Simulated scan of single mutants.
Amino acid sequence: MSWIVLVVSGVLEAVWAAALAASHGFRRLIPTLVFTLACGVSMAGLAYAMTDLPTGTAYAVWVGIGATLTVVWGIVTGAERVTVARVLLLALLVGSVVGLKVVS
């Protein structure tokens, strides 16, 4: 169960990161509200997962999922360019997250 909560929390990390950018310095109400809610739930999920999983592993997986999805979102929306190096590095990051799950 902790792994499922951790993955959902990682996804919510990407949501709050995108909402933070869309809030334009907390000047737009809806993105600010989405940021606040997603951030709170994401942190609570990470805290829950850390009661069962090693702290370093849980944090690395949470950040890895959030960072990967945030970059993918940037690419999909056109805010970031797609490059071979970027795709390879994202694949390495995803592989590292999967590897942490396998060895934990």
Rank of each mutant, 00 (worst) to 15 (best):
V72W: 01
L29Y: 12
V82Y: 13
A38G: 06
A14Y: 00
A47C: 10
A49F: 04
L89P: 04
M43S: 06
G64L: 08
G66F: 08
S96K: 08
K101T: 10
T51S: 15
A19Y: 00
M50F: 07
L90P: 01
A38Y: 03
A21M: 11
G74F: 04
A91Y: 10
A38H: 05
T57F: 11
Y59W: 13
S9K: 00
I4C: 09
L33D: 06
L46F: 00
A47E: 03
V11K: 00
L69S: 05
R27T: 14
A60R: 04
L29F: 15
V102F: 14
G40W: 09
L89T: 13
V94E: 01
L69E: 05
W3I: 06
C39L: 15
F26Y: 12
A19H: 04
T36I: 14
A58G: 09
W16L: 03
V71Y: 03
L37S: 07
G78D: 07
L90A: 07
T83F: 15
L6D: 02
T32Q: 02
G95P: 03
A79G: 11
G95L: 13
L20D: 05
A47F: 05
G45P: 01
T36G: 03
A21C: 07
S9Q: 05
Y59H: 06
V8D: 02
L20S: 02
I75Q: 04
V8Q: 04
Y48N: 10
L92C: 14
Y48F: 08
